[in-house]
Amino acid sequence: MRHESVPIYWRNIPHYYRLVARRCKKCGAVYFPPVVRCRCGSRELENVELPHEGRLIEYTVLHQVGTDFLKQKPLIIGLVELSNGVRVTGQIVDAQPDKLTPGTKMEVVFRRVIVDGRHGLVMYGYKFRPVGGI
């Protein structure tokens, strides 16, 4: 949406840039998006960076997009299971959709996500792409 909030972007930079998740100190459960309280009841969670490799579970090619993504369509939207078992949804780039398949090895890349017009902020974040190219 036009004029994205700068404070919202800024405070989420650790998550957007480095996939910082929350891990329960008691039971080890990892949450991404981060949470305040673990399902085991513990409120003691610590920051942990997620691995940058994983495998594709499923994907779709989205043609109807919001205003920020009009010039990027179609978007490939994927569900990826990282090497530690944590699953993350993300855009998939540098890929030909018809060659993607569940199980394809994926890596995390750093990309532009939203560009707020000609004068606003350029906002970055994680996306995925197939390893080794397809």
Binding site: V93, D94, V109, R111, R112, Y124, K127
Partner: peptide, 16 residues
Amino acid sequence: EGFDEDAVTIAVEAAR
């Protein structure tokens, strides 16, 4: 560069 790449994203990948 891809549509969502710029000198920043390229620098991050090389540095990582």
